[in-house]
Amino acid sequence: MATQEIKKQSPKVYIDRPDHLSGGHRLCAGCGAPVILRQVLMGAGDSPVVISNATGCVEVSTTIYPYTAWKDSYIHSAFENAAATISGVEAALISLKKQGKVTEDFKLLSVAGDGGSYDIGLQAISGALERYHDIVILCYDNGAYMNTGFQRSAATPKGAWTTTSPVGKVRPGKNQQRKNLTEIAIAHNIPYVAQASPHNFRDLIYKAEKAFAAKGPAFLNVLSPCPRGWRSKESDSIQLAEAMVKSNYWPLFEVENGVYKINYDPKKRKGAVADWMKQQGRFRHLFTPENEWIVEETQEMTDYQWERLKAMEEATARFGTQEAAEAQEPAE
């Protein structure tokens, strides 16, 4: 199906799709990652999937030997190489299909957290996107190395407490603003890039479906609440994701053949970054007279990024012709 024909469906349509993940995995109660995985894999529909997974929370919790929560084929080899591993699976799929040794169609998904995507796995992701494999690369971004006990990553928000950006007498948590990985993916000129959140499941499933349908590589960056690392209540995970989206800190948008589209504009319902920061213990130290500037600065940065995103949507609206998309595709 051409990606343009894919529309958001009602929950009744999506609930009929198979659940590709079983219960009995050992991710923390209230973790956002399995919610994301279930929704993303609903985007694959009935198709069998091969999942390549980086070392991390999802990996260690879903495949505790001798149990696996994956109903599809799954491979994990190391932390930094999920995208390279799925590249090899794709090459094998092409080769074996050509020879008639494999007859089924498979969707190919690479899964890594922000550590395995923004940091140690960035090179492998960039290489895979440039080589134009027909794969989907998913980042579940919980904003730190949660699996090993909350160390900072390039996705950690400024001012956040982590165990390697601790709060001390002279430092108020992480010093730097986060990296914009979604924009880095966009710069690879691939057919489809999207940012999403599990609280808007129709939007995420729709984006995953588009990503799987795209001819070539697609990248999904999805906000993944982490009660343990965010120091938040287990039951608040989905509500927190929604609050972060409503503050425009994590805008929902997609870029199809270079054309930006904002999928959700909170307008009058717009919230402030302080709304969700106050609910997360990792930002508790920021609500003091000496540290409040970090909250203000994050708000300014967020507003600036949002304005820039809107400008990109306006500026790119006239591009994205079929010819431009085809020119980007590799030769046979």
Partner: peptide, 16 residues
């Protein structure tokens, strides 16, 4: 692990 989705035989209900 040759059986897909066999984590369903592992019960996490006891965490509640």
């Amino acid at each position: 692990i040759p059986e897909a989705g066999n984590a369903r035989y592992y019960h996490t209900g006891g965490w509640r």
